Amino acid sequence: LRTVEMKKGPTDSLGISIAGGVGSPLGDVPIFIAMMHPTGVAAQTQKLRVGDRIVTICGTSTEGMTHTQAVNLLKNASGSIEMQV
């Protein structure tokens, strides 16, 4: 596991798309980074990659989380965001 910290302002975009989660079209698979926009906050860290499994978001485990719950957690996060992948 590695921990990645990002700074995100209220109008900034992380610039990632995620897939997976409980009840997702892919089945109940762990949440992972499906796409990254090169100008997004996540890409700027140069520490995240497409395919990385997201284990925690700001200390909250993604295990058993639906896709929608994970998306909302990421969208609503601002300031210092910590992810374990």
Rank of each mutant, 00 (worst) to 15 (best):
R49Y: 13
M36F: 01
A19P: 03
K7G: 04
V85M: 00
D28I: 03
P30E: 08
S80K: 14
M65L: 11
G23S: 07
A19L: 08
T39I: 03
N76T: 13
P38C: 07
A43H: 10
T66W: 02
G15Y: 01
V71H: 14
D52G: 03
G15M: 01
I57W: 08
G51E: 04
I57R: 04
A70I: 01
I57N: 01
T68K: 14
A34V: 07
R53E: 15
E63F: 09
T66G: 06
I81K: 01
L14K: 01
E5D: 10
Q44E: 08
Q44M: 12
A77Q: 11
L26K: 10
I18F: 10
V71L: 13
T45S: 13
S80G: 08
S13R: 14
E82A: 10
M35H: 15
V29K: 08
S17W: 10
Q69H: 11
L14I: 12
I81C: 08
G21M: 01
G64T: 07
S78D: 11
H67F: 08
N72S: 13
T56S: 15
K47P: 03
P25K: 10
G40N: 00
M6H: 04
E82R: 13
T3S: 09
N72K: 13
R53Q: 15
S17H: 13
V4A: 08
D52V: 01
L14W: 15
S17T: 15
D52P: 00
G51S: 04
S24E: 02
Q69F: 04
G40Y: 02
S17P: 03
T11L: 13
E82H: 12
L14C: 06
A34N: 11
L14A: 01
K75E: 15
H67Q: 14
S78T: 14
S61F: 06
T62W: 01
L1R: 01
G59M: 03
V22I: 14
D28V: 03
N72F: 07
Q46L: 06
V85T: 09
I33S: 04
C58H: 08
V22Y: 10
V55S: 08
N76G: 12
N76I: 08
F32E: 11
H37L: 09
M83E: 03
D28E: 07
V22C: 07
E82L: 09
S61D: 09
I18P: 02
V50L: 07
I16F: 10
G23A: 07
D52R: 03
Q69C: 08
N76F: 11
H37M: 07
M6Q: 00
N72Y: 08
Q44N: 11
G79Y: 04
L74T: 01
A34K: 13
H67T: 14
T45Y: 05
A77H: 12
S80V: 14
S61C: 09
F32L: 05
M83V: 13
M83I: 14
P38F: 05
Q44T: 08
N76H: 13
G15R: 02
S78R: 13
T39Q: 15
M65V: 02
K75Q: 13
G79F: 08
A19S: 11
K8H: 03
I18Y: 04
M35P: 05
P38M: 03
N72W: 08
V29T: 10
S80P: 12
G51W: 04
I16A: 02
I16S: 00
S13K: 14
G9W: 04
D52F: 04
K75P: 02
G15D: 06
T60L: 12
K47E: 12
L48W: 02
V71F: 13
S61T: 10
P38D: 10
G15W: 04
S13Q: 14
V41A: 10
I16H: 04
P10S: 09
A43T: 04
F32Y: 15
K47F: 05
T62E: 03
P30G: 09
A19R: 08
S61Y: 03
P38S: 07
T66A: 07
M35F: 15
D12L: 06
V29H: 06
G64M: 07
M6S: 04
M83T: 03
Q69V: 06
R49F: 14
A43M: 08
L14Q: 02
I54S: 01
A34Y: 07
K75Y: 11
D28R: 05
D28L: 02
M65W: 05
G64N: 13
A77C: 14
P38V: 01
G9Q: 08
R2T: 12
L73N: 00
L74S: 05
V85R: 05
V22M: 13
K75N: 15
M35C: 14
S13H: 15
I33L: 06
I81E: 04
N72P: 03
L1V: 14
T45E: 08
T11E: 15
V85I: 12
P10M: 10
C58E: 11
F32Q: 10
I18W: 04
L1Q: 01
S17M: 13
T66V: 02
G9D: 11
T56Y: 06
E82S: 14
F32D: 05
L14P: 02
R2V: 14
V29C: 11
T60S: 11
V85F: 00
S80C: 11
T56M: 08
T62Y: 02
M83F: 10
I16M: 14
V55N: 06
C58T: 05
R53N: 13
L26F: 11
V71G: 10
I54H: 05
V41K: 08
K8P: 11
K75C: 10
Q44Y: 05
R49T: 12
L14V: 08
S13N: 15
S24H: 06
S17K: 15
C58F: 07
T60G: 03
M83P: 01
T11F: 15
M65S: 01
Q84A: 08
T68M: 14
V71I: 13
L1E: 03
I18Q: 03
T11K: 15
P25Y: 11
R53D: 10
Q84I: 10
S17Q: 15
D12R: 07
T11Y: 14
T62S: 00
T45Q: 08
M65Q: 03
L48I: 08
H37R: 09
V22A: 09
L73I: 13
G51N: 06
S24V: 00
P25F: 06
I57G: 04
G21T: 01
V55I: 12
R49D: 09
S17N: 12
A77M: 10
M6N: 00
A34I: 04
I31M: 12
G40C: 05
T3I: 10
G9V: 06
P38H: 02
H67E: 13
T56N: 11
R49H: 14
V55T: 10
V71S: 14
Q46P: 04
C58V: 03
S61G: 06
G59D: 05
Q84F: 00
K75S: 13
S78E: 14
Q46E: 12
V85N: 02
T11C: 10
Q84Y: 01
G79L: 01
I33K: 05
L74Y: 08
V50P: 08
V29R: 09
I57F: 09
S13C: 14
I16Q: 02
I16E: 02
G51Q: 03
V55E: 12
M65D: 03
A70G: 07
T11N: 15
M83G: 03
G15I: 05
I33V: 09
G51D: 05
P10E: 12
I33Y: 02
C58D: 14
M36I: 14
G20P: 00
P10Y: 05
G79I: 01
H37P: 05
G20F: 04
V4G: 00
G64R: 09
M36H: 04
M6W: 05
V41W: 05
T39H: 13
I16N: 00
A19I: 09
H37F: 07
P30Q: 06
K47H: 10
T66F: 06
V85L: 05
K47A: 11
A19D: 11
R2K: 11
Q46C: 10
P25N: 08
K75M: 12
G21S: 04
V50M: 06
G79T: 09
L73P: 03
L1F: 12
M65P: 01
S17G: 13
D12F: 02
K7F: 15
T56K: 14
K7R: 13
V50E: 09
L26M: 13
G79H: 07
T68S: 13
V55W: 05
M36L: 15
V55G: 01
K75F: 08
S24L: 01
L14S: 02
R49L: 10
N72E: 14
A43V: 06
C58G: 13
V41M: 11
S61K: 12
S61W: 03
G64E: 07
Q46V: 00
R2I: 15
V85W: 00
I18H: 00
T60P: 00
I33D: 05
F32A: 06
Q46Y: 00
V29M: 10
A43Q: 08
T3R: 11
D28A: 04
T60H: 15
T39R: 13
K8L: 15
L73Q: 07
R53P: 07
V55R: 05
G27D: 05
R2S: 09
E5A: 11
G59A: 02
